[in-house]
Design a protein around this nucleic acid. Sequence first.
DNA 1: ATATTTTTGGACATTCTTGTCTAAATTGTC
DNA 2: GACAATTTAGACAAGAATGTCCAAAAATAT
Lengths: 215, 215
Amino acid sequence: MTTGIAPDIALPRSHSAKRLCIIEAAARVFCREGFAGANIDLIAAEAGVSRQTVYNHHGDKEKLFVAVVQDISDRTNAAIFETLSTFPDRPDDLEADLVEFAVRLNRNCVCNSEGRFLRKLLQAESDRYPELFSGWCDQGPAKIWAALGARFARLAHAGLIEIDEPDMVARQFLALINADLQMLLQMGRQPSEEQQRQSAQNAVRMFLRAYGKRP
Amino acid sequence: MTTGIAPDIALPRSHSAKRLCIIEAAARVFCREGFAGANIDLIAAEAGVSRQTVYNHHGDKEKLFVAVVQDISDRTNAAIFETLSTFPDRPDDLEADLVEFAVRLNRNCVCNSEGRFLRKLLQAESDRYPELFSGWCDQGPAKIWAALGARFARLAHAGLIEIDEPDMVARQFLALINADLQMLLQMGRQPSEEQQRQSAQNAVRMFLRAYGKRP
DNA sequence: ATATTTTTGGACATTCTTGTCTAAATTGTC
DNA sequence: GACAATTTAGACAAGAATGTCCAAAAATAT
């Protein structure tokens, strides 16, 4: 967690380290308290940094907020697409492989702290900063539906499932894998591994009952 | 919308009328701004009432907030169970009837302003007031899953569908009817009638593909 | 019409927060 | 070890919001 990376340009080491610390702490506090309720003194304390340093780095509460959302958005998008790349294109056991994929999706993108943060802030502040979040929306969810839809289309082409509208099927798949978790997620709680797996299993079973190849 | 009801006890008319006005205005403002960001002057102005009157009625910003959540929770629960009572127990055309039911659910419970309010505040403030929202959770969602599950079980008993775990199936149904709307709902936007219907239709079609009786 | 209750508008003290400034201390570099 | 940059702690001004108090005005009931 220190640095250890190539010193491309002579970055003041602890400078950028503190920058990250601040972003992380700010993310936690914004997530807990919302934009209006977040207190810069608290952010500074939680980052282990003086208040002035926060202002030195980010200038402004609003700028800090935007930086935090940007950062988390990017990280979440990366996680989504990385997980997407593990889709079982040539499944051994379609049901089991889809369950594992769904579990990964839940764990790495939906139920982790970044996912929770984004969901919460999206709902709380997307009215106030429409461009900020709709940007994420176009690059994240909109693309993931298309990408996941394409994967399902390929499965259909391989004769493993039968579907008509891949994008819609992708949305249904995503909705289903959270069906059992919705209330927990909405209350900002972290579902257990076991709950995540159970939810994924139930989802895939129904999914294949609807779209699986019939004998 | 005035009074018109039997004057059981000699209620000062505009007294309780103003009480309602304040609750409604506070709901709007809390929903827009969150608890911390909500401004009592603004609530008073939006209710068409002086600030002092707000304090006379509810004493405290926190008490006001609790009263608002209680009020909206009760109304939403009532709407849910009323809609639930229109479930097609003896369907004429199962698919069409389920679609209509899903549309009603979306319109009266999920996509309306109370639904939006509750979703937003649940996510924003359920950490700070756990008892307040978990109370609603036990009386609302938990019961609706059971109740809707029982309806599906009856359909299964009548030989119209084939299911194993009614409660889980109920959760899947509810998740599916919002699959296409999730992003809009999460951003606090109001999906159009057409979008709501489309989403319901897609959901029911998949639902019956999975659980409908096969010839 | 009168008496009672509620509402109003505004002044007010208090607290909290943001954002700036400055001098001292710490850190890292040469 | 000396020098430069960053960080720190604390003071500070300005503004905003909560909640209280009060006297005048309005509405309600008798």
